[in-house]
Design a protein around this nucleic acid. Structure first.
Length: 433
RNA sequence: GGAGGGAUUCCCGAGUGGCCAAAGGGAACAGACUGUAAAUCUGUCGUCGGACGACUUCGGAGGUUCGAAUCCUCCUCCCUCCA
């Protein structure tokens, strides 16, 4: 950028390359002219052309955030949609890899893009702590700072309310005590919004309290009301119109609380809704129930994001129940401890039985790892504690997840989601672990 | 030739009379991980059996003692220093 040369990108470089059909009818062109004039033209399905012109650094014309529901599965609640953001389109259902500290662990942005990632996650709390949102803003925003051109979603820090020790939760916000630095961090709705606006992600999340499981109903009820109040405060504090603010439904495992929370949030009218407070140890059966009785309260024409989920089986069950977006640290975290996903289940590459296994991790996989390396080699890397083990394993796991999502989308389009899911799970369970 | 130091369970290494099957670390093996306090954490790690227990271990052989990895004697091997 800034060399005066023309730079052209295809849709595939913007993180949109799962479906050949869409690839062929979508392209986006950036023209960068010496004076800093930026012209952006985007064609979508040959029917609509949006041209934004802005002076670089000063005026940026807003691209609207838009969700289109393309197809609904006949037998289940599975949905196929498209989410348009200022940094590109997202085909749903989608899995969003997690790069908490403005970095995917053990992967370069290019490797993440090569795995067909469309959008990634970063974290408000962690980036506020280090390097601080002011610095990220000075660096030109999160996208430029971390060299990721595609859409980004920032989580609000609500999950840290659940996961971190040494915190004090009040009616107005949360005091965190940083374990290493000893620093005290205070987050409330207004602050979470200010930080996320400075970071500049495409989708930002309301500040909520992720309720632990198990939890008695009276606490869940009080906490859920607080999350509702905080959502309203977030909405008031949110000023950047090029960012979509998603609200988060809490309510633990209680149907009436979830319904109440969803209804009230929908009344406040957000561009997207998340179900939070799951994947906190409740297990797949309860997760299914929660999604089943919460999703129907969410509007059809808005994206639905199931936070922190999960394992492949969790995602498939939740797609079936009408969820569109997922994120989870599992593919990357598991990769670093040698657990890899295959069509026949998870395998642990540190296991001695892979020492002389000269097959790819997943023979049908087209990822960089599987097309170039054997299980024996990865076993060797893990046993030798080589950094490359984490890289190759992460590439495979992220690719595996995103490939599964691409197959899910195609299956929904072709009206055979249930068959796909059943087929996947029967094969997957057979060789599990 | 003389003087001194040492040999511990796969490896490194603590232990100097009972609380020792023997600290700690590593390796090995197994497991966990769901909006990342995470290249992290947990378990097993002499043998046999369920915890409890039984049996065999601290270079080798004897001895002292109710009791020895620990004390004594001799032997083997290794290291350092002086000739």
């Amino acid at each position: 950028m800034g060399t005066g040369s023309e730079k052209q990108r295809t849709g595939s470089e913007c993180g949109q390359r799962n479906s050949a059909d869409y690839l062929s009818c979508f392209s986006s062109t950036y023209l960068v002219i010496k004076a800093g004039l930026r012209i952006r033209a985007k064609k979508y399905q040959q029917t609509r052309v949006v041209v934004n012109i802005g002076i670089s650094g000063n005026i940026t014309l807003m691209k609207s955030f838009n969700f289109t529901l393309l197809t609904k599965d006949r037998k289940t609640s599975a949905r196929r949609g498209v989410l348009e953001t200022p940094h590109g389109r997202i085909e749903t259902p989608i899995f969003m890899p997690v790069g908490t500290h403005a970095a995917m662990k053990a992967m370069t942005p290019r490797q993440v893009a090569d795995c067909n990632a469309q959008i990634i996650l970063c974290n408000t709390y962690h980036l506020h702590l280090r390097p601080g949102e002011a610095l990220v803003e000075k660096a030109g925003g999160l996208h430029r700072f971390m060299a990721w051109d595609g859409p980004i979603l920032t989580d609000s820090g609500g999950f840290q309310v659940f996961s971190l020790p040494n915190k004090r939760i009040t009616e107005d916000g949360v005091f965190f005590r940083h374990e290493i630095t000893g620093e005290e961090i205070f987050l409330d709705p207004a602050k979470a919004m200010a930080i996320q606006e400075a970071l500049g992600a495409d989708i930002i999340m309301a500040f909520d309290e992720c309720i632990p499981y198990p939890c008695d109903k009276s606490y869940a009820s009080r906490s859920t009301r607080k999350t509702l109040r905080w959502a309203e405060e977030c909405k008031k504090a949110h000023t950047r119109r090029d960012q979509a603010l998603f609200a988060i439904v809490q309510g633990s495992i209680f149907e009436d609380l979830r319904a109440m929370c969803a209804r009230e949030l929908v009344q406040m009218d957000f561009p997207g809704y998340a179900i939070g407070g799951v994947s906190v140890g409740e297990g797949l059966e309860l997760l299914k129930k929660v999604v089943e009785f919460t999703a129907p309260h969410l509007p059809e024409d808005k994206p639905r994001y199931l936070m922190g989920v999960g394992l492949p089986e969790d995602i498939l069950e939740s797609v079936e129940r009408g969820m569109d977006m997922f994120d989870c640290v599992i593919p990357t975290r598991y990769a670093r401890s040698a657990t890899l996903f295959t069509n026949r289940g998870r395998i642990r590459l540190t296991s001695r039985k892979y020492r002389r296994d000269f097959y790819p991790v997943e023979p049908n996989c087209t990822c960089y790892t599987c097309t170039n390396f054997t299980r024996a080699y990865l076993h060797h890397l893990f046993v030798s504690n080589e950094v490359l083990s984490a890289i190759l394993a992460s590439i495979h796991n992220v690719h595996f997840y995103l490939n599964m999502m691409a197959e899910v989308r195609t299956a929904i389009e072709e009206g055979r989601f249930s068959e796909y899911k059943n087929n996947f799970l029967s094969q997957y369970d057979k060789g599990g672990k």
